[in-house]
Design a protein around this nucleic acid. Sequence first.
DNA 1: TTCAGATGTAAATGTTTTGTGAACAAAGCA
DNA 2: TGCTTTGTTCACAAAACATTTACATCTGAA
Lengths: 224, 224
Amino acid sequence: MFQILVVEDDASLRRLMSAALKQNGYQPFTASDGVEALDMLEKTNIDLIISDIMMPNMDGYELTRQLRSADFQMPIIMVTAKESFEDKKEGFNAGTDDYMVKPIDINEMILRVGALLKRSKLASEHTMTVGNCVLDYDAQTVSFNGEPGETIPQMEFKLLFKLLSYPNKIFTRRQLLDELWGMDKDVDERTVDVHIKRLRERCGCADSFSIVTVRGLGYKAVKQ
Amino acid sequence: MFQILVVEDDASLRRLMSAALKQNGYQPFTASDGVEALDMLEKTNIDLIISDIMMPNMDGYELTRQLRSADFQMPIIMVTAKESFEDKKEGFNAGTDDYMVKPIDINEMILRVGALLKRSKLASEHTMTVGNCVLDYDAQTVSFNGEPGETIPQMEFKLLFKLLSYPNKIFTRRQLLDELWGMDKDVDERTVDVHIKRLRERCGCADSFSIVTVRGLGYKAVKQ
DNA sequence: TTCAGATGTAAATGTTTTGTGAACAAAGCA
DNA sequence: TGCTTTGTTCACAAAACATTTACATCTGAA
């Protein structure tokens, strides 16, 4: 059973979220601010966190940053009152995985939780197999036809992993730069092209996927 | 733009709901009973239905059942006069997604519509199905008969998506240029013809729609 | 039926986007 | 430090696509 931590200072909303999670087969834990949350994380094995941004003592961003720097890798859903770009930007910099805007739709929350857990479970298996190709996230290696894995450059690996995690989904260059390089970096969009080119060469022997250009939009991985 | 069908026999309430939806950026369609509603569903691509329960000819439950068995998957909000458990039970059995009790709070209605659309959009991953043809908005692909989708050029995709979103609606070339190319662009109207031609070739194997010329006016997609 | 205007279509043209090699910069390492 | 690997930028070639053009064909009103 997945364990989910709800960090929210409004007690009635916290109860509502907690009840909905329980009803959907998750085990909820709660905290009313970031300090309590960190404390709770010490004592439990949390799989996913839903956290408000505005909280006393320690806000959601700070919580996220502390978690990530303490090497906690679970998905984090941030809850925000305002749907502003600045918020999202700061959130993603801090290492957030998803966003919800208040007032929260409980059904939507359950859906997002399910989606993130599914994805993170996949990611936490640490390997991804696509046809004759195996990616190992920990070793940052790619291997074909069962041969010993080859360590490949970080950027190429991240890019490949991202694309293969969402087959068929088109990523714009900007999206890839934001998500893989980071919002703050000021890198030319053409850089993506170069990494894509190198990836294509490297994955020439892949039998079950290819990286496809969608002119005017970006790139996507297509499974064959 | 999301298209919402209001099924309600009280004309003044229907108008009120319709106006509120329009004001909030949705495109409302109306029907006064279940039979009319089914008719309307043939001619449009409705994203969500708000339906009264008590109506002449065919009540809301029956409508829901017929829709679900005809494989329509859009969310349905039921409007009921009495807040009885039996009602809700029957409604959820029939396949309803949400409930509202009369007298309707228009703001609440808009909120519920927004929430449901967000959810169904998440779940359906942005696809539109018309007969044997599936358009995937994220992947910009078109597929027929369940075969793997083919990525098609942006303009063709936008054009096809637009036409199929409003089956039977006639678009003038000027309208299409303004809405798909953008007001500012100064493009010859004949350009539309060329894209239409290419689309027709591409969609030759579509079994349930075709793109029809309306001489002197423009083009429309017709469901068969 | 005729004819003018509307539409279909192939091909030419123009524009934008992408691929790619090479050079350079930065980081990691012995 | 000097060497190797990785990441980025740039410039130009190549490709993809959009648009225009020119002409054939169709349509409906007179």
